[in-house]
Design a protein around this nucleic acid. Sequence first.
DNA 1: GCGAAAAAGGAAACCGGTGTCAAAGCGATT
DNA 2: AATCGCTTTGACACCGGTTTCCTTTTTCGC
Lengths: 341, 341
Amino acid sequence: MTKAGQNPTINDVARVAGVSKKTVSRVINRSPMLKPDTRQKVEAVIAELGYIPNPQARALALRRNFLLGLLHDNPNAQTVLNFQEGVLDAIRDTEFALVVRPVDRHSPDLLDDIRNFLEQQRLYGVMILPPISERDEIAEICRELRCGYVRMGSAELDEPMHLVQSNDREAVGVAVDHLVACGHRRIALITGPEGFRSAIERQAGFMEAMQRHDLAVPAELVVEGNYRFESGKAAAEQLLALDNPPTAIFACNDEMAIGALQLAQQRGLNVPEDLSLIGFDDTPIAAHIWPPLTTVRWPIRKMAEAAALKLIRPDDADSQPALFISDLMRRQSVATISPQK
Amino acid sequence: MTKAGQNPTINDVARVAGVSKKTVSRVINRSPMLKPDTRQKVEAVIAELGYIPNPQARALALRRNFLLGLLHDNPNAQTVLNFQEGVLDAIRDTEFALVVRPVDRHSPDLLDDIRNFLEQQRLYGVMILPPISERDEIAEICRELRCGYVRMGSAELDEPMHLVQSNDREAVGVAVDHLVACGHRRIALITGPEGFRSAIERQAGFMEAMQRHDLAVPAELVVEGNYRFESGKAAAEQLLALDNPPTAIFACNDEMAIGALQLAQQRGLNVPEDLSLIGFDDTPIAAHIWPPLTTVRWPIRKMAEAAALKLIRPDDADSQPALFISDLMRRQSVATISPQK
DNA sequence: GCGAAAAAGGAAACCGGTGTCAAAGCGATT
DNA sequence: AATCGCTTTGACACCGGTTTCCTTTTTCGC
């Protein structure tokens, strides 16, 4: 330390090493045109002084900072947190940091909030989680403010460079295949809320798969939910009250599946013997309830890493997979039955 | 916009308004010595140009940025996310932003990681969540780097200005009181992992409350857990295998309580008729399992807000409560029994 | 109407980096 | 030895704010 109590600056390093600031800057930025012994000399001084470049000064000079933003409307705590960890995987050992911004999907000020946030913070780029990733207006704001962005989603929301996609549709197909393979024919669907791309994709995946198996999906077996626990409960209540109730329910997310499970248990039904259940998301709860829930897991952490890399190194974007494959986690909420019908 | 495609700067505002940079700066910073009409004139230009001060330039000139850090080792996704939202409540409409940094408690590089993070980002201040908030070395690093910090915790870990505390001990007492009031006498404890202050506090609260009711706590009714689901399951297995099993179990967190619940259900027991259960944390799962879990809720969001305010406005620290009171959420996992014994 | 004090505003330096461009160093060629 | 061309280095301006210090203007008492 040259001045007591102050962090050393590039000037201190330059003075001690007997070179110019610019040369120190070249060392920091790994400029190729530097004599090896100059580089070593400067590096020695940097180490000796414990010099660390001031990110704010760098940000100012470069006219861009090293902050990645995460915009989300908390679809699910575990999902958001896994995403954060995935981003950290990508930015570990870089100078980037992750700024989070939870927003309220239902606020009338949503777009203004986001615009203010982006204008004020001038982020390097921002990642947008579903469901708000589906709002084109937000992408529009990013473009307008010249802020890099990547949208996470289950549909082709944007150009590949701005999109990291999961294949919800196929994944639901696998789940349905599993139910059919277990002998189920009368399979109900609890949908997601209207207007959500993920809900549309999951529902489409369900319908396509049922059709592939030549199974009818009568209207009474499709109940609309809103991704919340209570709606799953209500939907299950409605389904179980049918004259000919389903033997299996696919819910478009875990929370609703767990709602359905709770209702079934309240009704005294045994899951999976009396009713098989599949969810979507593989929230940690899914494995912790009884019986453990069979569900679709999407590789959120890897997707987060890919999203961050797309922002940090857009050049490598082509090498980054943009479409991620979900897995069916087979647990104990699905029983094999003898097809009655 | 004065130059196409560029954000307006303070110079642009000054030029258009016909004043000096300094005057614009005074307007932004609400300096008191300004003629009202000068202020209005500048404000009009600011609005007209859509000028927003560059946070990086401000950070450089002020030698401090406006980033609050959150250091955590994901004790629980919902807790972390609630905390983030609480911080947002505090920094909404300010220029601050929230940077998150998940770390790995078990990594040998934990302290180096944290030090690098703080050195590189030069945050305004950092909030530390339990359990790593209990590590004094981390606070030591913050002090050394002159980085503001606040620790969240259930014990008196630090001076009041660096601490936001929850009263786990009393809260557990309330939970035990509830069990006793419901007729339970043989109450078991599933502890948290060794070395966690929260675990110590919760255990102490349990013991003190039992003593207050003149109830014995034989050694076989205290089983060590580690806050994870599986350990709750294992502990319950051990407890239910006793010749004289408990009629109620208090688990030091929800995850373990839910593990215990799952085991009881696997064993064919009815909860709460055959076994009452109380957890701690009020994770969202708690309300969504069957039966809904009676548990202790700590006001994490308010605590987060208080922590952020302590960093942003240390002067008001005295007005900020530093000790937060937890509530017992009475749900359906506790039954009233006739005291047998 | 005058002078002094107080208030308001501006010029220039500074925060700690990076970009531009010219100069210096240096080996090879003539 | 002088010239050429390439690599390496440095001086200086600049990024967009704040701070210091000084000048100008306003206010007010007499």
